[in-house]
Design a protein around this nucleic acid. Structure first.
Length: 406
DNA sequence: CGCATTTGACCCGCGC
DNA sequence: GCGCGGGTCAAATGCG
């Protein structure tokens, strides 16, 4: 049934894109007789709905990260390297509440942002310091803070005090969090001087075997393969969340809607925008529970009951990519249903599962891809999970990630 | 001795 | 304005 729904949904998307393109062509012809401003407004409208988000999301995929690996220093500085930085541009505009962005403007602001962000980083990580340094730009600062606060949280069962994720971390603080008898530990990345990435590690209050690791920020240095998976997840997640927060007449995407979209079907990846900071949660603690598949399919009865078209518009920017592989989505999606209860067993024996059966990462990727049609996000999710599950196998991690990208 | 960790102090935002 | 909680700093401490 889910495959059927997915089929219909895909067909609907294709139809929508076709209509939009026809509409656009017609407008382009007819507006030759109209005023130039009218033409501009149409074009802008289209840019906001389709190419803009496409432009933001695509570079955040694994390929962008790979570029960083091969050209770490110079590339990083010119285009700032860290995907959510682009997101910041989007959210900045979202706060300003204007849909007047063009690609040119975006580049221009990107340049400004680099200059802004470089100084606080070289000065240390403190957002407080950053705020003190630039007291004259409250709006942009708050947006920047929002960008930086986009987080990826990973829940996994582990007896160890910290999950090995390929990076080097230094503990810089520990606090007792309210409502949790277990202390929360604060770490920052020490693989490069001035790397802004931080993470928090805390045990779940309800189940202390569950370790909750929350990542924040983007690395400013090349990463080992195992660490890259997690980093790309952070980037893609932040990208997804914040690009979805931008306003438009069509309501491109709402994180709450997205959360409702992903949650009921996979129960593995959830997105929360209601938290103090937008957070993606990867839940790797799911115990086998076949009954979950008895649940009804996702119902879009969320906070936006009258706007099912939001879902279509959110996915449409990725259509050119996702349309190239509908069989991929569908087949893997059904694979998820068949073998989801392998999730916990794979945690213990990742290497045994790969040759014959789809990996857990494949399944999550397929599930989220089928729903979101966002290749960069789903690939990153899959890579992250592979990274965690196969923490001792960085090669398999990167391979799986690459395969997912393909 | 150098580095990492610990831990109390401090800062800041937010709600009342 | 005040208190609270989250997050960070930095001196003290521990460890190899």
């Amino acid at each position: 049934m889910i495959s059927h729904v997915s089929n219909n949904y895909t067909a609907l998307q294709m139809h929508l894109v076709t209509l939009m393109q026809q509409h656009r062509n017609r407008e382009a012809k007819s507006t030759q007789e109209h005023e130039i401003q009218e033409v501009k407004s149409e074009v802008k409208k289209d840019e906001v709905v389709v190419p803009r988000q496409f432009m933001e999301l695509v570079p955040h995929s694994g390929t962008a990260e790979t570029d960083e690996m091969t050209h770490p220093s110079s590339e990083e500085r010119t285009r700032s390297g860290s995907p959510p930085n682009n997101v910041e541009v989007a959210s900045k505009d979202s706060i300003k509440g204007k849909n007047e962005i063009s690609q040119f403007n975006q580049e221009e602001r990107d340049g400004k942002r680099i200059d802004r962000e470089e100084s606080p980083e070289s000065d240390g990580w403190g957002p407080n310091k950053a705020q003190k340094l630039n007291p004259a730009k409250p709006i942009e600062q708050s947006t920047e803070a929002t960008m930086r606060k986009a987080r990826v949280s990973v829940r996994a069962r582990s007896e160890a005090p910290m999950i090995s994720d390929g990076c080097q971390w230094r503990k810089y603080g520990q606090k007792m969090a309210k409502g949790n008898p277990c202390p929360r530990a604060y770490y920052r990345c020490t693989m490069a001087v001035g790397c802004p990435v931080r993470k928090q590690v805390q045990r779940c209050a309800e189940d202390r075997t569950i370790l909750i690791t929350t990542y924040e920020g983007n690395h400013n240095h090349p990463l080992p393969p195992a660490a890259m998976a997690m980093a790309s997840t952070t980037s893609a997640a932040a990208s997804m969340l914040l690009s979805g927060s931008m306003p438009s007449a069509d309501g491109i995407m709402n994180p709450n809607l997205l959360a409702r979209t992903i949650l009921p079907s996979s129960s593995m990846a959830t997105i929360s925008a209601s938290a103090p900071f937008p957070t993606v949660t990867l839940d790797l603690t799911q115990s086998p529970n076949p009954l979950k598949f008895q649940r009804p399919p996702p119902q879009f009865d969320g906070p936006f009951p009258g706007q099912p078209q939001n879902l279509a518009s959110l996915s449409s920017p990725q259509l050119p990519q996702s349309f190239g592989q509908p069989p991929f989505n569908q087949s893997k999606f059904s694979g998820l249903q068949l073998s989801k209860d392998m999730g916990s067993s794979q945690l213990g024996h990742p290497q045994l599962q790969q040759p014959q059966l789809p990996t857990l990462a494949d399944k999550v990727s397929a599930a989220t891809a089928a729903i979101t049609n966002d290749p960069s996000f789903t690939a990153a999710l899959a890579a992250a999970i592979t990274s965690i599950i196969g923490g001792a196998h960085p090669n398999s991690s990167s391979n799986t990630s690459n395969n997912d990208n393909k």
